[in-house]
Write a protein that binds this DNA or RNA. Structure first.
Lengths: 115, 115
DNA sequence: CGTGCAGATAGCGAGTTAGTTATATCTATA
DNA sequence: TATAGATATAACTAACTCGCTATCTGCACG
């Protein structure tokens, strides 16, 4: 009687504090913009030396530049997204690359659909 | 060539500021709780004298009591939800009844699903 | 193994949120 | 129409957000 028949994705729901954290992470024009850019890093950021934009996402420096805020401000926005589980950080060759956690985002939006 | 064939509900998307406002309204444990209660007012609130719980929703006094905060605090939470377009207020016989705007919530969650 | 650069952290200030109490408004009805 | 009760607004405070600059950390590589 496997529920996999009905739920190909993991149905684990966030508890109330985690859901609130995720919604707070989304409730920012800047962070919504970042998530949008990360849908297609190649289209929105310059070519990168070390990290593959498709596999590892966009370099933090480019996100900072494109946001037009200071490096620490961008760094904290990315931390909010990572802590909320929406984005994955990959340190590599002295840089940090960020990509969407598509599965987590899908689970979250599924859960929000039930609100 | 009506798009109604593809979209039985109105597909109008919120612009960036309205989306941010709606997400901020959702990004609160208290307000998520209120929205949950309003899914079934009869199950969560005492019987009401004037307003039909199903048609008009729950009386503000009962929401205040159940939240366990002061009346002005509850009043402002409800204002945030109304301003975000998630809840409809109906003044009636000296009380104000609140119900979910199910269509607006559905449109919002559809839009969030595209994030 | 030292230097340099990317990123994280600290600390500060302005603006916002969320709670409070006090008061104003507004409506229903005696 | 005066009053009472429900809700909204005002004013204040504490805590949090988000920007900044300055500084620290830590990894790569010469």
């Amino acid at each position: 009687m496997s529920s996999v028949l009905f739920s190909p994705v993991d149905e684990t729901e966030l508890d109330a504090p985690d859901l609130e954290r995720a919604l707070k992470a989304l409730a920012s024009a800047r962070r919504l913009q970042i998530l949008e850019w990360l849908k297609d890093p190649q289209a929105h950021f310059p070519p990168q030396e070390h990290g593959d934009p498709v596999e590892h996402g966009a370099c933090n420096m480019y996100i900072t530049d494109k946001l037009g805020v200071s490096q620490p401000a961008a760094s904290r926005h990315m931390k909010v997204l990572v802590d909320a589980g929406l984005v994955i950080a990959t340190p590599r060759a002295g840089y940090v690359y960020y990509r969407r956690d598509s599965d987590a985002i899908a689970r979250l939006t599924d859960q929000i659909a039930g609100l």
